[in-house]
Measured scan of single mutants.
Amino acid sequence: NCLEGLIFVITGVLESIERDEAKSLIERYGGKVTGNVSKKTNYLVMGRDSGQSKSDKAAALGTKIIDEDGLLNLI
C-alpha cells in the first residue's frame, strides 16, 4: 500500500494505460481518486490534452503535478 492515504486527480488522456486502469491501480495500492483538485489533493496526474484549469488550481494549492510515468514510478 505505497499510496496509502494519498489523493489523486487524473486529467487528460493517458498514453500507456486507460484512465479506469490508472484509477484501479491507485486504489489497489491504497490511494484514492477524486474528480477535482482541492487542498486535500496530493497529486495531479496530467495526461495529453489536459485542461488548464486543473493545473492552475493545483499550482495555486501547491499540489504536486506529475505525468503518467511519475505515477508509475510512485508504485
Rank of each mutant, 00 (worst) to 15 (best):
N1G: 09
N1Y: 06
C2D: 09
L3K: 04
E4F: 02
E4V: 03
E4W: 01
E4T: 10
G5V: 01
L6A: 07
I7V: 11
V9M: 04
G12W: 02
G12A: 00
V13Y: 09
L14D: 04
L14G: 06
E15F: 05
E15C: 07
S16R: 13
I17E: 06
I17T: 08
E18G: 15
R19D: 06
D20Q: 11
A22E: 01
A22H: 00
K23Y: 08
K23M: 10
K23E: 11
K23R: 12
S24Q: 13
S24L: 12
L25N: 00
L25F: 04
L25H: 00
I26Y: 00
I26S: 03
E27I: 06
E27Q: 07
Y29L: 11
G31A: 02
G31P: 00
G31S: 01
V33D: 02
T34S: 13
T34W: 05
G35P: 14
G35F: 08
N36W: 06
N36F: 06
N36T: 14
V37F: 06
K40P: 00
T41R: 00
Y43H: 09
G47S: 06
R48N: 08
D49T: 09
S50I: 05
S50A: 15
G51E: 15
Q52H: 10
S53F: 13
D56Q: 13
D56A: 13
D56N: 12
A58V: 09
A58S: 06
A60N: 07
L61N: 07
G62S: 05
G62Q: 04
T63M: 06
T63P: 08
K64R: 10
I65V: 11
I65N: 03
D67V: 01
D67G: 07
D67I: 00
E68T: 14
E68R: 09
D69Q: 15
D69I: 12
G70F: 03
L71W: 01
L71P: 03
L72W: 11
N73P: 01
N73L: 05
N73D: 12
N73K: 15
L74S: 01
L74E: 01
L74P: 02
I75K: 01
I75M: 07
I75Y: 03
